[in-house]
């Protein structure tokens, strides 16, 4: 039975400089793929030759303020050898586009749609890159770091509308460290001075 580190070394032998040295943290092995354009090739090799037949998850990270802004993380798993491997690749905000891996694992279809929906990263060659949680026509990407938690107003007639949510004064605002239970309890704080 191979270990994740051995499989990572095999991946590096095949792709050379494209793949960074594996880092290990709390028993989990991660690799950085330097060129996002090659991610589909790396994934196809990992599935075809190294037995990573299961994409556990695909997620996007917003490194707001840093360049490149986006990191896409691929969690690979092999059901036969039970090894877990993490691949990371970074894309700049200007580009915001990288090849799809839904041709490698079909489960990536919905994961990539989610990353597109919430962060606005596009996956080239995706068979059906529509929004998956928000509705078609919603003008924002709500999981970006520069998008306010309260949301923004939008209006698509007959489809949906949004209004920004009040973040204070609602019935579930809690005062931590209040003097008594009535003060600590989540309750309406509307009309407070502070």
């Amino acid at each position: 039975m191979p270990t994740p580190l051995e499989l990572a070394v095999k991946l590096r032998e095949r792709f050379g400089e494209l793949i960074s040295a594996p880092t290990e943290f709390r028993g989990e092995v991660a690799l950085d793929v330097c060129d996002p354009e090659r991610i589909a090739d790396v994934c196809a090799f990992a599935k075809g030759q190294l037995g990573f037949d299961f994409l556990l998850d695909l997620s996007g990270v917003d490194n707001y303020g840093a360049d490149p802004r986006w990191t896409v993380v691929y969690e690979l798993f092999g059901l036969a050898h039970r090894c877990h491997l993490r691949l990371r690749t970074s894309v700049s905000e200007e580009k915001s586009e990288l090849p799809t891996v839904s041709t490698v694992w079909r489960t990536a279809n919905w994961h990539e749609r989610e990353a597109y929906d919430l962060l606005g990263i596009r996956f080239r060659g995706h068979p059906d890159l529509r929004r998956i949680l928000m509705w078609e026509g919603y003008p924002y990407f709500p999981l970006r770091k520069d998008f306010p938690l309260a949301g923004k107003s939008s209006e698509i007639p007959e489809v949906a509308f949004t209004r920004s949510a009040p973040l204070e004064g609602g019935p579930f605002v809690t005062t931590a460290g209040g003097a008594d239970t009535a003060d600590r309890e989540p309750r309406a704080r509307a009309g407070r001075e502070d």
Partner: peptide
């Protein structure tokens, strides 16, 4: 809206 003071 309860505890969901959120965009969605």
């Amino acid at each position: 809206g309860g505890m969901y003071r959120s965009y969605s």
